[in-house]
Amino acid sequence: MPVFHTKTIESILEPVAQQVSRLVIIHEEGEAGHEMPDLERPVFAVSKAVTNLVKVGREMSTSTDDLILKQDMPQALNKVDEAARLLVEAAKLSKIDPLSKPARMKLIEGSRWILQGTSNVLLVFDESEVRKIVQDCKKTLDYLSVAEVVENMEDLVQFVRDLSPILSRVTVEVCKRTEDLTHQIHREVLNRCVEQVKTLAPILICSMKIFIQILSQDGKGVEEAAENRNYLCGRMSEELNEIIRVLQLTTYDEDEWD
C-alpha cells in the first residue's frame, strides 16, 4: 500500500521519509549517545529552502481563485516554518552541548515535522490541481445537459464546437493524472472511464444527428431516437461523475473500496 497517492509527491518525500526513519532507528538503538556533528550549515540549507517554499506558497495562496487553497495553504506553510525553527534550535543546542538529548529530540521532531509539513503543502497544492480537473469535468457535464434541447443542425454544430475542446482537455488531464497516481485500482477505474467517454462521445453526436434528421423529416421514430440520445448522454454523464469521484479519492479512502 503506497503511503503517497501520487508519484510526484512520492518521488519528493520518499527519500526524506527513509532518512527520518533511519534517524529514529539510530536514536532508538542507542547509538546516538555520542557527540552530534556541527549541524549549523545543513540546518541553514533547510531553513533557506523552507523560506523559499513559504514565499512561493504565500504567493500562490494570494494569487489563486481557489478559496480552499487560500484557506489551507498558510496553515500548512506555518507547520513547515515551525519545523525549521525546531531544527535551528537543535543545531544551536548541539553546538553548545554536542551530547545534548533535547538537541537530538528536536532534530528528530523537526525532521518529522518538515516531512509532515511539506507533505501537507504538497497535498493542499495537489488537491487544488484535482479541483481544476473536476471543474472541467463539471463544465463538460453542463454542456452534455444541453444535448436534449438540440433540435437542428445549426445547434448541433455549435454543441460539438462547445463540447469538443473541453472534452478533449478533460481526457488529456485525467490521463495525465492517472499516470501520476500510485493507486492501481484508481488508475484502472479512471482509464476505463476515460476510454468509455472517448468511445461514447462520437456515438452521442451521431444519435443527436439521427434525432434531428428524423425530426426534420416525417418524425417517425423520433421518441426512440430521443431515448437513444438520452441514454448515451446519461452514460457519458455517469462516466464523468465516476471520474469526479475517483479523482477526489486518495489512498487513505481505501476503506471505501472494501
Binding site: L13, V16, Q19, H34, L39, A45, S111, I114, T118
Partner: peptide
C-alpha cells in the same frame, strides 16, 4: 511548478541534514 521545486529543495536539504547527523553517529559507534 514552483511549489514542487521548492518542496524538492526542502526534501533534499533535509535528507542531507539527517544523513550528516546520522552518519556521524554511526561512524562514532
Amino acid at each position: 511548478e514552483l511549489i514542487l521545486d521548492a518542496a524538492k529543495s526542502i526534501a533534499s536539504a533535509t535528507a542531507a541534514l539527517i544523513k550528516a547527523a546520522s552518519e556521524a553517529q554511526r561512524e562514532l559507534v
